[in-house]
Amino acid sequence: MVDVRGVSRTFHRGRTPVPVLKGLSLQMEKGEFLALMGPSGSGKSTLLNLIAGLDRPTGGEVIVGGSEIHLLSERKLAGWRSRNVGFVFQFSNLLGALSAERNVAVPLLLTSFSARERRRRVDIALEIVGLSERGKHRPRELSGGEQQRVGIARALVNDPMLLVCDEPTGDLDRTTSAEILDLLVALNRDHGKTILMVTHDPVAAERASRTLHLEDGRLAEGGDDGTVAVPVHEPAGAAV
């Protein structure tokens, strides 16, 4: 489903190149819920952006759902994102002047669905996140957790195969975080969504089916407790 091969990404600060990802590889199965952890500035968001088609790698290949997205033009990539990826961010970043249901409907502006189909999709998405009754409310009339749910409904409305979540609970308290994580787990389990979640929170990572650690531009498989196990890029000969 996701196949990242030898990807590197180097930014430039002035004239100094800053290598953030240094040739890493990563595979995700369809229906997997993967948590990505690592210190601040290690490149988690950078990797997530590459997989979600928001950014293009300096080197290597990114194949998602069979598309070689590192080869797509910016324009094609935009279309690809709208059809295949749902985004959830740390802050729900809803448009303040629009009601919840209109916020959810924003991605549908890029589709050719009939008004009726749009309506249906918005209703279903709000139903899934448990906010059917709050569609007419403005973001400021909703709690932080509810706003994040609206954000998730917006990510779902185009029925993407992949959900990418960059610290989706970063701004929420324990209880609300747990609710949002329950929702993500349900989306993964009951709706078959493949999920990539960046998080700093080991408790959140525990809810995922697998955890990877990003450090110094490379990936390492993590244990359930969030500790680092054998780095995958090292020869595993010693284990034989």
Partner: peptide, 14 residues
């Protein structure tokens, strides 16, 4: 700027 970035992420072309 963030909001515009969001629209682009959602698939709005430049």
């Amino acid at each position: 700027i963030g909001e515009i970035g969001l629209l682009k992420a959602l698939g709005f072309t430049s």
